[in-house]
């Protein structure tokens, strides 16, 4: 029983790190993704090209490698005189990675809005920003709720990858127990993820229902 409590405590402590990465990543990557998506839709060719390349690189390489690059490359290049703290490095990698994925979801959502919606706003004398925020955005949000929800649930599990730069997250703690001869904490840790993803699933079906007051 003592052992169970100890394991639970340790796993909770680890899961706290996962939740922290999760929260900060969402908080920063959701708006950053919007900026990136603007870049990939701009008519200014060099910026568009640059953004597309960025998204290609980020989506085209493993998040694990990105974690390595953010954490190890600065100290290797500066011979140890500059490095991000581990958690900061993890957050930078996660935010950039998820912003790239979110930006593509936003882009898909924004481009799926019929041109007539923009034109209706234009002939009513609305400004570009007004059309975006007052007319298009809500419709985009409704359309991207499902794919964003999907991505967010993937993020919950991806936070475990932070262990490659030795963030003591839940899976790493669970593995440590197996080094001490306890196997079950590894499987027990699954419950934490399942519970968290379960809550998120409920939350998203609630949001989708909320947004269901209109069709189109």
């Amino acid at each position: 029983m003592d052992q169970f409590i100890n394991v639970t405590q340790q796993l909770f402590k680890g899961f706290g790190e996962n939740c922290f990465i999760f929260a900060i990543t969402l908080l920063l990557a959701l708006p950053l993704g919007l900026i990136v998506s603007m870049g990939s839709m701009t008519k200014f060719k060099p910026l568009k090209w640059l953004t597309k390349t960025f998204v290609w690189i980020i989506r085209g390489t493993p998040l694990m490698l990105q974690l390595f690059v953010v954490f190890y490359i600065p100290p290797l290049v500066s011979n140890g005189s500059f490095s991000f703290p581990r958690m900061q490095a993890a957050l930078i990698a996660f935010v950039i990675n998820y912003a790239a994925y979110f930006s593509e979801i936003y882009r898909g959502g924004i481009e799926s809005i019929p041109r007539g919606q923009y034109e209706a706003g234009q002939v009513l004398g609305m400004k570009k920003t007004q059309i975006f925020f007052k007319v298009v955005l809500m419709q985009v949000i409704k359309r991207i709720t499902a794919p964003i929800g999907n991505e967010i649930i993937t993020l919950v599990k991806d936070t475990s990858l932070a262990s490659v730069i030795a963030i003591p997250e839940i899976l790493m703690n669970a593995k440590d127990f197996s080094m001490e001869g306890l196997i079950w904490p590894l499987f027990y840790s699954a419950l934490f993820f399942l519970a968290f993803c379960g809550i998120l699933t409920l939350l998203f079906s609630f949001i989708e229902k909320k947004l269901d007051y209109y069709k189109g």
């Binding site: 190890y72 100290p75 290797l76 140890g80 490095s83 581990r86 490659v164 030795a166 790493m172």
Partner: peptide, 16 residues
Amino acid sequence: QKIDWDSKEVELNAKT
């Protein structure tokens, strides 16, 4: 500092 054993050489050389 707890590390990932597979990355020990990199950690050392990165002075982390």
